[in-house]
Design a protein around this nucleic acid. Structure first.
Length: 482
RNA sequence: CGGGGCGUAGCGCAGUCUGGUUAGCGCACUUGACUGGGGGUCAAGGGGCCGGAGGUUCAAAUCCUCUCGCCCCGACCA
């Protein structure tokens, strides 16, 4: 296969890794690390996307009163055991440090798979009174989970994430926090990533071990499979009990705190790729694109190179003043080569500036999803670009919603249900379910589809379970998932 | 840990069944010239312990044994 044809990516492909590898090789996004199986390398372009995600979310967290902090990478094994005594269904895939300083350690350390335990440990010291609550902490960090099977971006053994950990004086307040953060994730996914999501509650079998309730945002990838893109947990008093995190309430009584935790990870990058990309490469929403506009100078043999290059520089500078990140690509490659490269990187807009354009006081413009080029006057260029980018952001979201809608259906008979999920097929299917874990397991066994969530925002229309015929309060969301 | 596929140049691959010139091809890379508005052309180059170890043979990328690693499907998934 030639490199050119290998560059074609197929978002609907069943072999999703092929798609990533192509994007990665061509688009310089990332590649699997050679050092540790299943760990990841994020090259600069990919990391710039992550930095934008971080910045966007961080602002939202701070607006809602959260503070960033940092906790240790290594957690004493006893902390994990302490948790296990209180938390049922604990099944760790942990990497453990047993040696340091050339000696075997008395007590091994676990590389954090998540930080509930060590943060619980510090909460216990920090919280004494109801006046110390709520305590709203967020951490940006790396974590490690020794999963049996890794998948690029979606389940790497080491990954970057943010984990919020909060402690509250009442269950009501903790529950509000869980919903608040779920909605912040949904807002971020839709407004920034242009990735429509379904907000809902997880069933008991999909719940975070130790949580009373787990909520998630579920996005649909282009192959119809679901991606859990963020979670928000109501931890109740489970961790408070495990780590003895108590406070004195207004009546002077000692109570365990009510905790929540919530997180999103570099998996979002995977979601972004699999939501928008097409056969020409990545497609990035302007709010997350590291570079908004690639300016390509067109240099002919007998033209004034300096004039063209300085015109390009001026335009880049003007756009930057308007908050648009533009770069002038002065590398010694043919223009066509540069066009393809910037498209593969997902850059929303390209401007070409050559001798003919300078004469006419214009630039040739092409959007990432356009099939044709258009001329754009230099007068008020920044304004035009700004408007274009805003529309592009909206269009990506609408496109993704449209795609999801076309792949979403309500199903009432199990026969039809099985038909929808035959082979590798996946859709978003809303169907009635009797609420029993056995039914859920049977469906998973027979169709590979799982209950992604019990959606919060749909009509609570009662019905009958498609398998048992027993009553159901509302439809739940089924899909195959990553 | 099961089932399937695969390790040959930076990347993607052919060659393996049927052992036999100096191990090939595309892309990428280097140099030069002409070029330059959608992946340029021509010319000349550089780059390989054919994943590793052992065996069979006059002869191994190719056959045999072992081993290491990767990918997909499953199990698993705080």
């Amino acid at each position: 296969m030639s490199d050119k044809s290998a560059a074609r990516i197929t978002p609907r492909s069943e072999d999703y890794s092929r798609w990533y590898l192509d994007v990665i090789r061509q688009g310089d996004l990332a590649e699997p690390a050679e050092v540790v199986k299943g760990s990841m390398v994020i090259k600069p372009h990919g990391f710039a996307i992550w930095e934008k995600i971080q910045r966007g979310l961080d602002d939202m967290f701070k607006e809602t009163g959260h503070q960033n902090a940092y906790f240790p990478l290594l957690i004493p094994e006893s902390f994990i055991k302490k948790e296990a005594e209180h938390v049922d269904g604990f099944s760790p895939e942990l990497a453990v440090v047993t040696h340091a300083g050339g000696k075997e350690l008395e007590e091994p350390y676990v590389i954090r798979p998540t930080s509930e335990t060590i943060i619980g440990h510090f909460f216990q010291r920090w919280i004494e009174s109801y006046r110390d609550l709520p305590l709203l902490i967020n951490q940006w960090a790396n974590v490690m989970r020794w999963e049996l099977r890794t998948r690029m971006f979606l389940r790497t053994s080491e990954f970057l994430w943010q984990e919020g950990h909060t402690a509250h004086a009442s269950h009501e307040e903790a529950k509000e926090e869980v919903q608040r953060m779920l909605r912040i994730y949904a807002e971020f996914a839709e407004d920034w990533m242009a990735m429509p999501v379904v907000c809902g509650e997880k069933t008991a079998s999909e719940r975070f071990a130790g949580a009373l309730e787990t909520y998630s945002i579920e996005a649909m990838m282009q192959d119809g499979k679901a991606l859990q893109a963020g979670t928000s947990h109501d931890l109740g008093q489970n961790f408070g009990k495990a780590f003895d995190v108590t406070f004195q309430n207004e009546k002077g009584e000692s109570e365990y705190v009510w905790q929540t935790s919530w997180g999103v990870s570099t998996r979002l990058i995977g979601g972004l790729i699999m939501t928008h990309s097409d056969d020409n490469g990545l497609v990035l929403p302007p709010k997350l694109a590291p570079i908004h506009v690639a300016i390509i100078p067109i240099l002919a043999k007998n033209c004034d190179e300096n004039q063209i290059l300085s015109a390009c520089d001026n335009i880049a500078a003007d756009l930057k003043k308007a908050g648009i990140n533009a770069v002038c690509d002065k590398r010694d490659y043919k223009p066509g080569y540069k066009y393809f490269e910037w498209e593969q990187k997902g850059t929303p807009m390209r401007l070409e500036i050559g001798p003919r354009d300078l004469e006419k006081n214009q630039a040739m413009m092409k959007g990432r999803l356009d099939s044709e080029k258009n001329s754009l006057s230099m007068d008020g260029l920044a304004q035009h670009v700004e408007t274009y980018l805003a529309n592009f952001q909206t269009e990506l979201f609408e496109r993704a919603k449209q795609r999801r809608q076309e792949a979403t259906l309500e199903v009432d008979s199990y026969e039809d249900f099985k038909e929808v999920f035959a082979g590798q097929n996946s859709r978003f299917v809303y169907a009635h379910w009797n609420g029993a874990a056995e039914t859920e397991a049977q469906i998973k066994e027979e169709t590979k589809a799982t209950i992604r969530c019990i959606p919060l925002d749909i009509d609570k229309e009662p019905g009958k379970c498609m398998i048992s015929g027993e009553p159901s309060k509302q439809r739940v969301l089924f899909a195959k998932s990553y």
